[in-house]
């Protein structure tokens, strides 16, 4: 596909538009109605994958802004989701700088590290600087299902990248 074509630009903007849409709309990945404990943080999967594979599609400033929007919609203190997303970017960029060739397994493991650091910061700040209470079991389920679903979304995003964007890996 020609790099200047409109469709190519739309496909390239797809991941970022999806991130913005997930943050600003009522659409959520909290599927408690389907299965009582099934919740996942889709935003961090999306950010991590694209930062690792095609960082030029996920500008840091946009991710920061999406985090702020997410905070407003969810009622969290401003900046906390941005910080959590920036930690994901940081780990993703570090892994990208250090590795030459990645596999789904290596990405899965490094995603686990990124998620741990990001959630640790998110919940530590929330616990210490806000009145909000949260259930640790819910955090555990959320992290487990986010990690569990990562390879599925990895494959889907990979198919999207190969089909619509090209230039499979860094």
């Amino acid at each position: 596909m020609a790099k200047n074509s409109l469709f190519y630009k739309i496909y390239n903007a797809g991941p970022l538009l999806l991130l913005y849409y997930l943050c600003i709309s009522e659409v959520d990945t909290n599927l408690e109605k389907v299965f009582e404990i099934f919740t996942l943080n889709f935003q961090i999967i999306l950010i991590y994958f694209w930062v690792l594979k095609k960082p030029e599609l996920m500008a840091n400033g946009h991710i920061f802004l999406a985090g702020l929007i997410n905070d407003v919609v969810m009622g969290f203190p401003l900046g906390i989701s941005s910080l959590s997303y920036l930690i994901i970017i940081f780990v993703g960029t570090y892994v990208r700088n250090k590795s030459v060739n990645t596999t789904i397994a290596s990405d899965w493991f490094t995603f686990f590290m990124a998620m741990i650091f990001s959630n640790l910061l998110f919940f530590s700040l929330l616990n210490n600087f806000s009145d909000l209470e949260f259930s640790y079991s819910k955090i555990g389920y959320n992290m487990f299902f986010t990690l569990f679903m990562f390879p599925i979304f990895w494959l889907l995003f990979n198919i999207y990248q190969i089909s619509f964007i090209g230039n499979r890996d860094a």
Partner: peptide, 29 residues
Amino acid sequence: SALLQRGGAQKFSVLSLIFLALIIFFLDV
């Protein structure tokens, strides 16, 4: 490099945005 990298699509470094997010967070809290 992960903290300070800029250029191309990245107009802001991760470090500068982390500082900005922290400032916004504490101002809000």
